[in-house]
């Protein structure tokens, strides 16, 4: 069980969804996250940069079939922060 800790960086709607999308998987490609959130490249880039600067997600650029691809994954710190934030939200709701 994670310690409840409200995190205002993660709480922003899109950033919370990015963390929630990345939590059950090892990595997701930038375009997959973009399609799931239905946001533009620039909006997603902005949120990804904010999370990356906080060391909550890691961004890896790798070429696959001669096509550059950007992979996003939740770091250990990010996972702890995300789970703590969800626990804090549950506490507020009273679950």
């Amino acid at each position: 069980m994670s310690k409840a800790c409200f995190d205002s960086l993660i709480h922003a709607h899109n950033r919370l969804q990015i963390c929630a999308l990345l939590h059950p998987v090892s990595e997701l490609e930038f375009s997959v996250v973009k399609a799931q959130l239905e946001v533009s490249d620039s909006v997603l880039s902005k949120h990804v940069k904010a999370l990356e600067q906080a060391n909550y997600i890691s961004v890896a650029k790798r070429a696959s079939l001669s096509r550059p691809r950007t992979w996003l994954s939740l770091t250990e710190l990010g996972e702890t922060a995300y789970l703590g934030h969800v626990a804090a939200l549950k506490e507020i709701v009273g679950l």
Binding site: D7, H11, L16, C19, A20, L21, K90, I92, V93
Partner: peptide, 24 residues
């Protein structure tokens, strides 16, 4: 790290997070 959101906002955030997790 301070929270000053209400129960309704927290519930909406939880629903959004669970929805995204389910999508993944």
């Amino acid at each position: 790290k301070d929270s000053n959101i209400g129960a309704e906002a927290a519930r909406a955030s939880l629903i959004a997070a669970n929805g995204a997790k389910r999508q993944a």
